[in-house]
């Protein structure tokens, strides 16, 4: 389970130019949590997640929406990608920071939140 979460983060950050990205990362993360839920029961998975899934969806949407704003303030159209500096990392090569990464983080949270919410609701509704 921790391995899956770690892998999902790797998928998230290498997203922009390589296969991967927020959507896949979010799904992998949701799979990890669902696995935990199957193994130890849904209440345990909920405790593990700490925040309720709708909160994840809300935060993710907020981050994704806000990532469009910096472009707007620089006189560019909404959602224009702006890149900042980059740091080298072990696994993913260069990790570049910028609004597209922020957008992907938002997508990651939304997808993970929705998938987990779906699985929890359906699993508890027995």
């Amino acid at each position: 389970m921790p391995l899956q979460l770690a892998f999902s983060i790797v998928l998230l950050v290498r997203g922009h130019n390589e296969p991967g990205g927020g959507f896949i990362g979010g799904l992998v993360a949701a799979c990890g949590i669902a696995l935990h839920g199957i193994a130890f029961g849904i209440p345990a998975a909920r405790r593990l997640l700490r925040v309720p899934p709708p909160m994840l969806i809300g935060t993710g949407l907020l981050i994704a929406a806000l990532s469009g704003l910096p472009g707007l303030f620089q006189g560019q159209p909404f959602l224009t990608g702006l890149w900042g500096g980059s740091v080298p990392t072990l696994l993913a090569g260069q990790l570049k920071f910028g609004t597209p990464l922020l957008f992907d983080v938002g997508v990651y949270l939304v997808v993970a939140g929705i998938a987990v919410h779906l699985i929890f609701t359906m699993a508890e509704d027995q």
């Binding site: 909160m55 809300g58 935060t59 949407l61 907020l62 929406a65 469009g68 707007l72 909404f78």
Partner: peptide
């Protein structure tokens, strides 16, 4: 042009939060 989309989106997010 962007505001009519941003406003309900942000409101929805705020309502969820």
């Amino acid at each position: 042009l962007v505001l009519p989309l941003l406003v309900p989106l942000l409101t929805a997010v705020a309502c969820i939060l």
